[in-house]
């Protein structure tokens, strides 16, 4: 049951149907011209058809077709840290929050304290100098 074809087929079918349904709510075209809902419905219809084709033709006993998540815990942790970092965007000093975020991420990925700190400091400083100082993109 862990077939990627099966899961993605179902997901795309749902999106396709959603597009068709939402497209009918948009104002219709005037004078025989397609309106705002024409393309959403057309894309939705093609997507639903392709999704059905994917589900029907899926290779049932293909071992390589199953999802291999690998280090799922590390991926979730890294993505979670980035989520918190983006949530805190604009709070406090850019240099500070960025360095802390990078140090925590690198530590989490198994780096020792001092290389993690050194690398984070270098990256943060470089990003700040390149964007804030040289290009006037205010990051704080």
């Amino acid at each position: 049951m862990n077939s990627t074809d099966w899961i993605s087929g179902g997901l795309f079918l749902a999106i396709g149907i959603g597009l068709i349904a939402s497209g009918s709510a948009f104002p219709a075209g005037v004078g025989g011209l397609p309106g705002a809902g024409f393309f959403p419905q057309a894309i939705g219809a093609v997507m639903a058809m392709l999704a059905c084709a994917l589900v029907v033709t899926r290779r049932k006993k293909d071992a390589s077709d199953s999802i291999q998540m690998g280090n799922a815990r590390q991926v979730a942790g890294a993505a979670g840290l980035l989520f918190v970092y983006l949530l805190l965007w604009g709070q406090g000093l850019f240099i500070l929050r960025t360095a802390v975020f990078l140090i925590l991420t690198l530590r989490f990925l198994g780096q020792r304290w001092w290389p993690a700190t050194a690398c984070s400091a270098a990256l943060t400083a470089f990003a700040y100098l390149a964007f804030d100082t040289a290009l006037n993109v205010s990051l704080d």
Partner: peptide
């Protein structure tokens, strides 16, 4: 080391 590269990609991508 790969984690340094990842940190750099994520940071520069975000900024």
């Amino acid at each position: 080391p790969a984690p340094w590269l990842w940190g750099g990609i994520v940071l520069f991508g975000t900024v």
